[in-house]
Write a protein that binds this DNA or RNA. Structure first.
Length: 540
RNA sequence: GGCGGGGUAGCUCAGCUGGUUAGAGCGGCGGAAUCAUAAUCCGUAGGUCCCCAGUUCAAGUCUGGGUCUCGCUACCA
């Protein structure tokens, strides 16, 4: 394995989301995964900078705004706020939320442009294509069809005509070999490997120069040397990662130290932009390249792609409302291997909630803590001599950090969680075989078993924090752990649970999910025809 | 067409550089236990590891062929 550099800084980004409409589950998935990674690194002692935001320029925004009778900026304001709300609902702890309509971003984009231009990589030429006046957009030839009337039309039916306009081009072709050399020298630059293969194959096939400005659009960042042109959307959008650090802006910025980023988390649909265009832009501008681009897969609703026409589009806010923030986070992170596609359904979520959370971690905590409460008046017992079973159990949980760390070196989120939950199973077996409830035990032996179990729960809770910040916080409260005792430094044999401390009255941390209606359908956003049964246990 | 992934127990999937009776979770079935949120533990379910042919003392794990499936094959954010 080839982990990342273990510096003390960790700059991680989500893609900036296109607020042309309301957020959907895919946005939520990316945000949750990125947040879990960021939290993990932060707990592991890194100086983390977690960035997210919205990408607000481009033709689509303009068209939607026009249709709604508002300005593009008004549309952006409205929808960008929804993405902020989503982050809040999911409990992400990002450090900055960037909007591409902010002045700092204009400044950075224009500076990047100037540098690429100064390096001789930008030139003016004509861009030709089939243009639809109505759509204000170009279409590839194979997207268009010639009707019986002899008129060529784009997919939505408006006529197109061959149009050529001035456009600035970026000499992408110049970077083919440099990119290939970079991929070769940094085998983990693009993960997972399947995505890397696709990119290498694409680049090997030859690169054409890229049209990076539009003269027919006014909703974007103006080209410095020619304000009649606006930067093409990817030139604008990708730059956000650099903007947020301030390295292309005038003045001091304590975040300048964060570039280059350790990892860009993206969906697999935008790999090329991040793994080809973006590094080429950066090379041209003389900036360092991010260490890694990690492309995750998609989550499908019961294995089917979400689509408005099928009517299985799920609102992430509804999901959080129905199952709770932590459960949704945990499910998304555990269910699918990060990088592969996965699927979700009401049944699958409920199974995870009940099996892994309520019956797993929740039950383990409850069965041990309630016995400490009853048998030791809530005071953590001092362990007596340890048996082989005790030391084995402790060794198992002590080994967890190393496993989690090496998994997360490659953003293998599921591997990390699998390891933690595997230890929960071990702890249940330990508990069942040592039987602290057995009447024949001395009080000391009983206390030892409960001590060991509570210590295991403590470490499990610390390790599970990045996935479920709320529930684990409660769990650590139940173990009377101070804030300073919750980082990964507190893992392992050197930071055992302190005997003699008094614990609060234990209470359940992971509620069982009980269907209000046995016949509850999948978590689909229903077309309004069926009256919806409230699924949230506590909603009216 | 080219390139790249996949096809393993009812379901979802692990199986690294080839090596004893092929694993986990969920579900099903049968026991045990009673600390715990009707939670937990144990046993079991007897799977042609897609098919064919090879290499090898030995292949799910390598080679060739076939088949099914998915992704990429440039300006859509």
């Amino acid at each position: 394995m080839t982990g990342q550099k273990h510096t003390d800084q960790f700059y991680i980004t989500t893609p900036i989301f296109y607020p042309n409409g309301a957020p959907h589950i895919g946005h939520g998935y990316t945000a949750i995964a990125t947040d879990a990674i960021a939290r993990f690194e932060r707990l592991d002692g890194k100086d983390v900078f977690h960035l997210t935001g919205t990408d607000e320029h481009g033709l689509k925004m303009k068209q939607t705004a026009l249709k709604d009778g508002i300005t593009p900026l008004q549309l952006a304001d409205k929808n960008s706020a929804q993405f902020r709300d989503l982050m809040a609902a999911l409990g992400t702890a990002h450090d900055d939320f960037i909007r591409t309509t902010e002045p700092r971003h204009y400044e950075a984009c224009q500076e990047l442009w100037r540098r690429m231009e100064a390096n001789g990589d930008i030139y003016l030429n004509t861009y030709g294509g089939w243009y639809s006046v109505r759509q204000e957009a170009y279409f590839a030839e194979d997207e268009t069809t010639v009707g019986e009337d002899g008129v060529r039309r784009e997919p939505l039916g408006s006529p197109v005509e061959w149009t050529e306009e001035e456009s600035y081009f970026f000499r992408l072709s110049k970077y083919q070999d440099k990119l290939l050399a970079h991929y070769a020298a940094h085998p983990d630059f693009i993960l997972p490997p399947e995505r890397r293969n696709e990119v290498v194959s694409f680049v090997t096939g030859g690169l054409q120069d890229l049209s990076i400005s539009r003269g027919t659009l006014d909703w974007g960042v103006p080209v410095p040397s020619n304000p009649k042109h606006v930067m093409y959307v990817w030139t604008d959008a990708l730059t956000n990662y650099v903007t947020a650090t301030g390295i292309l802006n005038a003045g001091e910025n304590p975040r300048k130290k964060y570039w280059p980023a350790q990892v860009h988390i993206i969906g697999k649909d935008i790999v090329r932009f991040h793994a080809v265009y973006w590094p080429a832009f950066l090379m041209s501008a003389g900036l360092a390249l991010p260490e890694r681009v990690f492309a995750h897969g998609f989550l499908f609703n019961r294995g089917e792609k979400m689509s408005k026409s099928v009517g299985n589009v799920v609102d992430p806010f509804d999901l959080v409302k129905a199952y709770g923030r932590d459960a949704v986070r945990y499910f998304f992170l555990r269910e699918a291997s990060f990088g592969n596609d996965g699927s979700y359904s009401h049944d699958a979520i409920v199974t995870r909630m009940n099996s892994d959370l309520a019956n797993g971690l929740g039950n383990l905590a409850q069965r041990s803590l309630s016995m400490i409460a009853r048998n030791f008046e809530g005071v953590v017992p001092a362990p007596g001599p340890l048996t082989d079973a005790d030391t084995t159990m402790l060794a198992t949980v002590d080994a967890l950090y190393a496993k989690a760390r090496s998994a997360m070196d490659n953003q293998a989120i599921k591997v990390w969680l699998d390891a933690v939950w595997s230890a929960i199973g071990d702890a249940d077996r330990y508990f069942a075989s040592e039987k602290p409830f057995d009447k024949s035990h001395t009080l000391e032996r009983k206390g030892t078993i409960l001590y060991v179990t509570a210590e295991v729960v403590r470490q499990l809770a610390i390790l599970a924090q990045p996935a479920m910040p709320d529930a684990t916080a409660k769990l650590l409260d139940l173990l009377a752990q101070g804030q300073d005792a919750r980082t990964f430094k507190a893992l392992g044999p050197t930071h055992r649970l302190t005997p003699g401390i008094t614990l609060p009255t234990p209470s359940g941390v992971f509620p069982r999910f009980v269907d209000p209606d046995a016949a509850t359908p999948e978590p689909q956003a229903k077309p309004a025809k069926q009256p919806k049964q409230p699924k949230a246990p506590k909603s009216a």
